[in-house]
C-alpha cells in the first residue's frame, strides 16, 4: 500500500489522459467547449459571459426575446386587428398591406400571428408555472410525509400517467368544456405527474444525504429542514423539468387547438389558425396555415434549445423525464 497515495494519485492528469480509448465528440451532449460550467462563472459577469460564449443560448434567447417583444408591442403598433373581418379582402396573398396575407374571412394573418405569439408564450408559461408549482409541491409533500399521503398521491399520479399525455389533456379539456382555459387546465393536470414523481424521488434522495441527517440530529424542525435544506436542493431539478416542459406545453396547446378542443376560431391561436387554413393549403392559399406554424416552430425550437442548455448547466446527471 502506498501511503498518502491518494494525495498524488488522482491529480491533474487523470482527467486529461484517457485511460480507456475515447472517441472525439464522446463528451456529447455535454460538450465541454460548448457547455458553460456552473463553477467557472461565479459573480455578476457570468450571464453576459454565458451569452458571449454560448451561441446556442444566445440564439435561443434572441428568438424568444424577439417573439416576446413582438407579442407585447406588436398589437399596438400594427394597424390591423387580429379578429376584424374584411370579406372583400379574403384569401389575399402576402403583400405589403398584409405581410402574411389574409384568411377566408379577410382577417389579417400578421395581426393574428402577433397576437398568437402572445397567446402561445403566455399560455405556455402559465401551464409550466402552475404545473411546476402544483406538481413540485405535491412531490415535496409526498416525499416528506411518506406513508399514506405518499402512496395515495403516487397512485393518483400513476393513474394520470396511464394515459398518453396529449390524450389525457384532450380528455380533461373535453370534460371541462372546450376552450383555451380548459386546454391549459388539461395540460397542467397531464404534466403534474412528471414534476411530482421527479421531485418526490429527489426529495427521498436528498433526505438521506448526510447534512440533512445532521440537521435532523441537532434537532432542526422538519419545516425548517424542508425549507432550508430540501427545497433548495430539489429546485434545480424542478427547473430543468419545467424548462423541458415549456416547449412541450406550447406544441401541445397548439395541437389541442388544431384538433378543435383548445382555442376556437376566431381566437388567433396558432394551432387553431393552422386548422382554419387546412382546407386552403393545397388550393394555393398556403399562407394561412404555414405562417402560424412557422411561428410555432421558431418558438418551440428556441424553447427546446434553452431547455437543453438549462439541463446541461443545472443537471449534470442528465435527462428530464417525460
Amino acid at each position: 500500500m502506498v501511503g498518502r497515495g491518494d494525495r498524488w494519485d488522482h491529480r491533474a492528469m487523470s482527467g486529461a489522459l484517457p485511460d480507456a480509448p475515447q472517441r472525439p465528440g464522446s463528451q456529447e451532449p455535454r460538450d465541454e467547449a460548448r457547455a458553460p460550467r456552473v463553477g467557472d462563472g461565479r459573480g455578476r459577469a457570468w450571464p453576459r459571459r454565458l451569452l458571449r460564449t454560448d451561441r446556442q443560448i444566445a440564439a435561443a434567447l434572441s428568438i424568444l426575446g424577439a417573439l416576446v417583444i413582438m407579442a407585447v408591442l406588436g398589437p399596438t403598433l400594427w394597424r390591423h386587428s387580429p379578429t376584424a373581418t374584411y370579406l372583400a379582402d379574403s384569401l389575399a396573398a402576402p403583400s405589403t398591406a398584409h405581410p402574411m396575407g389574409t384568411d377566408s374571412n379577410g382577417r389579417d394573418i400578421f395581426a393574428r400571428f402577433i397576437r398568437g405569439a402572445g397567446i402561445s408564450i403566455s399560455a405556455g408559461a402559465t401551464v409550466v408555472f402552475v404545473g411546476a408549482l402544483l406538481g413540485g409541491a405535491l412531490g415535496l409533500v409526498a416525499g416528506l410525509a411518506r406513508g399514506i399521503v405518499d402512496s395515495v398521491a403516487m397512485r393518483v399520479m400513476d393513474a394520470l400517467l396511464a394515459f398518453p399525455a396529449l390524450i389525457l389533456a384532450m380528455a380533461i379539456t373535453i370534460g371541462l368544456g372546450v376552450g383555451i382555459v380548459s386546454a391549459c387546465a388539461g395540460l397542467v393536470l397531464s404534466t403534474i405527474p412528471w414534476y411530482a414523481r421527479l421531485i418526490r424521488s429527489e426529495v427521498l434522495r436528498v433526505s438521506q444525504l448526510p447534512f440533512i441527517e445532521a440537521a435532523r440530529a441537532v434537532g432542526a424542525a422538519p419545516g425548517r429542514i424542508a425549507r432550508r435544506h430540501v427545497v433548495p436542493h430539489v429546485m434545480p431539478t424542478l427547473l430543468v423539468q419545467a424548462a423541458g416542459a415549456f416547449g412541450y406545453s406550447i406544441v401541445a396547446l397548439a395541437a389541442l387547438g388544431f384538433i378543435g378542443v383548445g382555442a376556437q376560431i376566431p381566437t388567433p391561436e396558432w394551432g387553431a389558425m393552422i386548422t382554419d387554413g387546412l382546407p386552403y393549403t393545397l388550393t394555393g392559399q398556403w399562407w394561412i396555415s404555414v405562417c402560424p406554424g412557422l411561428g410555432l416552430m421558431l418558438l418551440v425550437v428556441a424553447a427546446n434549445l434553452l431547455a437543453d442548455r438549462v439541463r446541461d448547466v443545472l443537471d449534470p446527471r442528465g435527462g428530464y423525464a417525460r
Binding site: 416547449g247 397548439a254 395541437a255 388544431f258 393552422i274 393545397l282 396555415s289 404555414v290 406554424g293 418551440v300
Partner: peptide
C-alpha cells in the same frame, strides 16, 4: 423532430 409540430410538418410535406 422533437420540437416540430407534427401537424404542421405534415402540411409542409404535402405542400
Amino acid at each position: 423532430g422533437l420540437g416540430l409540430p407534427q401537424f404542421w410538418l405534415g402540411l409542409l410535406l404535402l405542400l
